[in-house]
């Protein structure tokens, strides 16, 4: 686990909220050396929705995630950043067991959703994925109508009893995704006909239509232009009221804008976790500083 001193410092950050004072102290503190690979900062929170302990991921012989422990708090946005190939997406996909589709992938350790160990043999992935929704890097609406895209999840999970309820769920989800005003008059048109930003919001609407507890977002804005990105970012901020969101991003400004906590991954290690402000203003690990100052990435 993380060094005791740092833990205490960070606990104080969180609990006492004395960020400025601590930041001043921290700037002067010596950075943790580049070769040090234990997690710096406090990866745990008081009210966790998801708890990950000593998670390791292997692709065949390749050790992709190395002993990562982290919590995801209720109704917070946790951003995961890091250079390409650092394992942030792999880790994200462990949270709803999307890695199961990769034949050679093996996951050890514990990941708990509320009190349930999602890697327990008895756990069914279907209801799990209803609880932990996902939005992908490239907008991937089904080649069906806008309505059917959103209605698909509630239908297969039997969340609605009749057509009226279904209409309500679709309307509600599209409204939450901020898309309703743009598409309310053409719900029967193919979702693939929308613009990139609209498609991504449609995918978000599709994810929230099944009322998940956690939404995983894998670089949701990487295929979007700046205006569409801004819209999606606003949406994420709004969704935080109801959902727990874990977002993987390449874009450090985005992480700074939307998240409350940030985790920095490096070559399969969780190097540093902390409140987003602190990570960007006062990284404690040398690697984190190198990355956010653009020395590599």
């Amino acid at each position: 686990m993380a060094p005791a001193m740092d833990t205490i410092l960070d606990m104080r950050d969180v609990i006492m909220g004395k960020d400025e004072a601590e930041a001043a102290v921290a700037t002067k503190a010596r950075k943790v050396d580049r070769d040090q690979r234990t997690t710096v900062g406090v990866p745990f929170v008081e009210e966790p929705r998801m708890i990950c302990r000593e998670v390791n991921v292997f692709y065949g012989d390749k050790h992709a995630i190395n002993n990562v422990s982290i919590d995801v708090g209720k109704n917070e946005v946790l951003a995961m950043i890091g250079p390409s190939g650092c394992g942030k997406s792999t880790f994200l996909r462990c949270l709803n067991r999307m890695n199961d589709t990769v034949a050679s992938c093996r996951v050890t350790g514990e990941i708990l959703l509320d009190a349930l160990n999602i890697y327990d043999k008895k756990v069914d992935v279907v209801p799990l994925r209803a609880q932990v929704g996902m939005v992908f890097q490239k907008p991937n609406p089904f080649p069906k109508s806008i309505f059917d895209n959103v209605a698909y999840g509630p239908k297969i999970h039997g969340l609605v009893n009749n057509k009226t309820e279904l209409n309500d769920v679709v309307e509600d989800s599209l409204k939450k995704a901020g898309l309703w005003n743009e598409v309310s008059d053409r719900l029967d048109q193919p979702g693939t006909g929308l613009s990139g930003g609209q498609q991504q919001r449609l995918c978000i609407a599709r994810a929230i239509a099944v009322r998940p507890e956690v939404i995983l977002m894998d670089e949701p804005c990487s295929a979007l232009d700046p205006i569409a990105t801004a819209t999606v970012e606003d949406l994420i901020t709004e969704l935080k009221e109801h959902y727990t969101i874990v977002i993987v991003t390449h874009n450090m400004q985005q992480a700074a804008r939307v998240s409350q906590r940030t985790a920095y991954f490096h070559l399969g290690d969780l190097v540093e976790v902390g409140p987003t402000d602190r990570i960007f203003t006062n990284p404690r690990h040398q690697l984190t500083e190198d990355y956010i100052t653009g020395r590599f990435g």
Binding site: N96, M98, T101, V126, P127, L128, R129, A130, G133, M134, V135, F136, K138, N140, P141, F142, P143, Y152, G153, I156, H157, C203, R206, A207, V210
Partner: peptide, 15 residues
């Protein structure tokens, strides 16, 4: 069939 469609369906919780 693009894998993104497969992921989309699995991601919503389709069996």
């Amino acid at each position: 069939v693009p894998p993104s469609i497969r992921e989309a369906a699995l991601g919503v919780g389709a069996s």
